[in-house]
Design a protein around this nucleic acid. Structure first.
Lengths: 268, 268
DNA sequence: TTTTATACTCCATAATTATGGAATATAGTC
DNA sequence: GACTATATTCCATAATTATGGAGTATAAAA
């Protein structure tokens, strides 16, 4: 004999039906996700509103998390991601074969061509800069380690989804493709999805001025045994250099990516 | 009228006193800490024993954490820290002024002297490698980003506690100083505590063969306004090079550390 | 072959805790 | 000067959930 909601709080008694509780762990993750997505500190009050959680809940959990160093309290009383999370993150990274091998090749490549080189990976609908070796030039690259941008903004982003089934690729770009700061990034899901597959098959993706003005990016995919793109290695250069030395740079990234795949294959 | 434990389960009724429960968040953190400290994947069974937690609890929480991507399940069914933690960690790092500024100077320094340069920080009783720029030489440095070693194993480790009150320094080394792989690291708490203060005051700490054979390390502290050591920058070289070019390297690290302090002071 | 450790699942329940609600204070803003 | 949003704390309690305990099945030891 099941009882419907209407039967419980329908007629006379006060509507005591309490919305089901959310566990502490879930609330915690909501808080962490919100902080990470906005990228700035927030007060307990703001977090409560953002997570649609009761104030009384959030104030307690935030205090608890601060005490456990999962959050840091800023001078103004707001909170931000804490050092404990960084500790876990570093341990994770240290045990990733891909990052170890790719990091080394990244340095070699950067030294060889004298330019900034990045290792990127995918996290859901975003591309993330996982490691970076600065080039000699003094032009500042805006993307540092940890930078997250929509997949359609970068050459690497396209490679990272190239192996997915067509419908999934389309779905990803449909929900996440957005205009880049320069306004030059392609945003049409169909075009992006097609280009992603082609670029991955080519083993190369080149982009110019899409996410930053006057900055070009030459990226090659690192694939696993099944052909899935598990990450990318890319050279970041001022736009004018592409015309000068494109063939050399293309060869260099391709070689680096091949060496990473090779070393991953042997060890794993 | 307070009731003692003896009065509750002492005489006739079955001893129903249940040990107080540990919250899900705490269990989660115990699990993450254990994985991080051992550095290898573990099964739910192992985790339960390690955390002194009931099996029924751990199996449920681990499954939950895997689903939430806080943990990754390996092929053998064991679990390891998951990508979600890395995501949070990267966001934390990206907003650390110190790492941004120091990372840049690290690259400059590495290019100038042609050697491997590391940025290190302290996490409790350990030193952690936060960033690294590989040198030209092909000798492999064992410490990669994320490496955690006891504070007494390295030149940086000593600097990182130099500003603490004497008793605290002593306490840290008393509980954490341990023999290094080479057996050459100082382990006497009193000696370490004294040397830590001296090195930080000097703005320089040099170590040779303490944590790795034939590897030397020349480290300089980065201090905040209050004089506390918030991190270090260090050159890692084969031992024989120290005698050849010590003065140059010392000047270079000192300069780099000074520039980091300078840039941090201006912005923050 | 018997034990013991590993590996895992399920249930009932006591113990915790996330929640609603109420109270308080300050600062914008209408 | 009334009103609303921000900011925070405290309590009672219903709802969840960590736990104990019991059960099952391998795989090592002994």
């Amino acid at each position: 004999m099941t009882v419907t909601e209407a039967e419980i709080d329908g007629d006379d008694g006060p509507p005591k039906r309490r919305a089901s509780r959310v566990s502490g762990i879930d609330r915690m993750l909501q808080i962490l996700d919100h902080l990470q997505q906005t990228g700035t500190p927030a007060t307990s009050y703001e977090l409560a509103k953002a997570c649609a959680a009761p104030l009384s809940t959030v104030y307690v959990i935030v205090d608890d998390m601060v005490e456990k160093r999962l959050l840091d309290r800023t001078a103004s009383g707001a909170v931000w991601l804490g050092p404990r999370l960084y500790r876990y993150g570093l341990s994770y990274a240290r045990n990733l074969d891909f990052l170890t091998v790719a990091g080394h090749e990244m340095n070699e490549l950067s030294r060889r061509v004298g330019e900034t080189v990045q290792i990127c990976g995918r996290d859901g609908d975003h591309m993330v800069v996982l490691a970076m070796a600065e080039g000699i030039g003094h032009f500042q690259v805006t993307s540092r380690v940890g930078t997250r941008v929509p997949l359609n903004w970068t050459a690497s982003g396209r490679l990272l989804v190239g192996h997915l089934p067509a419908d999934e690729r389309l779905a990803i770009f449909r929900r996440s493709a957005s205009a880049s700061p320069t306004g030059c990034a392609e945003t049409d899901p169909a075009v992006l999805a097609a280009s992603a597959e082609r670029c991955l098959a080519d083993g190369l993706s080149i982009q110019s001025g899409e996410s930053d003005y006057s900055v070009a990016c030459i990226a090659a995919p690192v694939r696993d045994d099944a052909g899935a793109c598990i990450g990318t290695i890319s050279i970041v250069v001022p736009e004018f250099k592409v015309s000068q030395s494109e063939p050399d740079l293309v060869t260099a990234v391709r070689d680096a990516a091949a060496r990473i795949e090779d070393r991953l294959g042997r060890s794993g």
